[in-house]
């Protein structure tokens, strides 16, 4: 089997789920004949028809709201945000209507809202966002943010099959850079389970999405330069969070760095830190530390973006600090 890109893995997941379940339909802007701004849905309308790959007006609130209505009556809509930054236009729909529907009204709302997210691409403040933390605070939603092509496929398939609404973030920096051979057969990766991306004994990096690759790079450098063995935990799903996996690694290494691309204040690292304190404070030999983006809207010029976003060298420095503590 040939290697495919992260982006192709997304497309494969969509195609397989559409073939498996006639209730799966896609909604989004320019996703039909054009195949989407990043070509994630390329060829799917030709294969499944206009009734299942539906081009919509530029109306994110209506896309998500309509998906909810369809889901109430048994369909399985998958919504594309042309860029995930525009999910803010559907924030009301997602947090008020969709997230609460099961709890307040016993209404299942199995929708997926997916789209390209993340920076390192000179996209500026409105084409680079990582809005996952804004939704972490909303009970009723699930949040997935894969880092590998295999996970992109397997988690998207699981998200489509899940009986609750799932936000599915696809880091656009990984779209064409990350490739893998897909596991054979019906490859489904369960939501809520983290992955050990690299085994280590000296300290743990908890991370997800694009910074998994930066953490791995930092770990290699630290192993080569000072024999430090860093464990890297790829969360894969942010909500629900895999507390057991985090705790197991903390018990093993006793030092934790949390890395994310999102801004530090109010970012997911704060929540993870609190959970570690609550579950396994006694196992820590050092304070939990965070590496993330500076608390500014993401600027566009390369020197500014590079300065604001976490880089491999930042992770290396932070690991050295933790190891020396």
């Amino acid at each position: 089997m040939a290697e495919i890109t992260f982006l192709e893995a997304i497309r494969e997941a969509l195609a397989e789920e559409m073939a498996r379940d006639p209730e799966v339909v896609l909604l989004g802007e320019d996703i039909g004949k054009y195949g989407g701004a990043f070509k994630a849905t390329d060829g799917l309308q030709a294969r499944f028809g206009e009734g299942r790959v539906i081009d919509t007006p530029v109306s994110e609130a209506a896309i998500v709201g309509a998906a909810a209505g369809m889901a109430h009556y048994g369909m399985r809509p998958v919504c594309e945000m042309q860029f995930i930054d525009f999910v803010s236009c559907a924030y009301d729909m997602l947090t008020n209507y969709v997230a609460t529907s099961r709890y307040r009204a016993f209404l299942p709302c199995p929708i997926v809202v997916r789209g390209p997210s993340g920076g390192y691409v000179r996209g500026g403040p409105f084409h680079s966002q990582n809005p996952e933390a804004a939704f972490l605070h909303t009970p009723g939603l699930k949040i997935v943010y894969p880092s590998t092509a295999e996970d992109a496929k397997g988690l998207l398939k699981a998200a489509i099959r899940d009986d609750d609404p799932v936000l599915f973030f696809e880091h656009k920096y990984l779209y064409r850079r990350i490739k893998a051979v897909m596991p054979p057969g019906d490859h489904v990766v369960p939501l809520g389970k983290a992955r050990v991306a690299r085994e280590g004994t000296d300290l743990t990096i908890v991370t997800y999405a694009a910074t998994v690759w930066k953490a791995l790079e930092a770990a290699e450098q630290l192993a080569a330069e000072e024999g430090l063995e860093v464990e890297v935990i790829d969360l894969r799903t942010l909500l629900p969070m895999d507390d057991e996996a985090i705790e197991a690694s903390v018990r093993k290494t006793n030092r934790v760095l949390i890395v994310h691309e999102d801004t530090v204040t109010g970012g997911i690292a704060g929540e993870i830190t609190a959970r570690i304190n609550e579950r396994c404070f006694e196992w820590l030999d050092a304070p939990v530390r965070r590496v993330g983006a500076h608390d500014v809207p993401l600027p566009y010029a390369p020197p500014l973006e590079d300065f604001v976003l976490p880089q491999t060298s930042d992770i290396v420095r932070a690991c050295r600090w933790l190891a020396a503590y």
Binding site: V264, R289, V291, G292, H294, D314, A318, R320, W321, Y325
Partner: peptide, 18 residues
Amino acid sequence: EMPPLWYRGDASAAVSKH
């Protein structure tokens, strides 16, 4: 203006603060 995050620059200096 806001200060740079803790790991920028001299991380070992940050150790002594703790």
